[in-house]
């Protein structure tokens, strides 16, 4: 075991880890940040997606030690007190979730997509870049609408 420091949602956080500890385990079990979900644990479903140094990654396939010194953003870092982040708000308004299990990963991946594409974002790009996030409830249609709305790209309320 060793003590590992990672900046999570703007604060340096430490926890004891083994070299084999996954980033998602560091977040959930080390820090109690259980908003990041473990779905498949095989790099497929995207429920564990977090932003690491500005890029969406699947935290079930990153060792915690690989993230040493990195800046990590999780779903817990988005809302400002009681005020939801625009993406969270858009997911809520567009019914972009049903059971909600995939939602944290879906939102963190979408955040990356919006930050990279800005005003150029279109539905096809959203669908392509969310390929690594599985939702078994919604059929994706409302997720795409929510992401485009949050990006300021239309989709009436």
């Amino acid at each position: 075991m060793r003590q590992l420091a990672i900046t999570v949602n703007g604060e340096v956080r430490t926890a004891d880890v083994e070299d084999r500890t996954l980033l998602v385990e560091f977040l959930r079990e080390g820090l109690g940040l259980t908003g990041t979900h473990v779905g498949c644990d095989t790099t497929q479903c995207g429920a564990c997606t977090v932003i690491m140094d500005g890029q969406a990654v699947k935290s079930c396939t990153v060792l915690a030690v690989m993230a040493e010194g990195a800046e990590v953003r999780t779903i817990e870092g988005l809302a400002d007190g009681d005020r939801l982040h625009p993406l969270q708000d858009a997911f809520s308004r567009h019914h972009a979730l049903q059971c909600g299990f995939c939602t944290p990963g879906m939102i963190m991946a979408s955040l990356d997509v919006i930050e990279r594409h800005g005003a150029d974002l279109d539905a096809q790009t959203v669908r392509h870049e969310l390929e690594g996030n599985l939702c078994r409830c919604t059929g994706y249609h409302n997720i795409v609408k929510a992401v485009l709305d949050a990006a300021g790209r239309g989709s009436p309320r």
């Binding site: 790099t43 995207g46 997606t49 890029q55 969406a56 990654v57 699947k58 396939t61 990153v62 991946a109 990356d112 997509v113 870049e129 969310l130 390929e131 690594g132 996030n133």
Partner: peptide, 9 residues
Amino acid sequence: IGDMQVRHR
């Protein structure tokens, strides 16, 4: 290759 998150790593 893979998906967006995979391509980032």
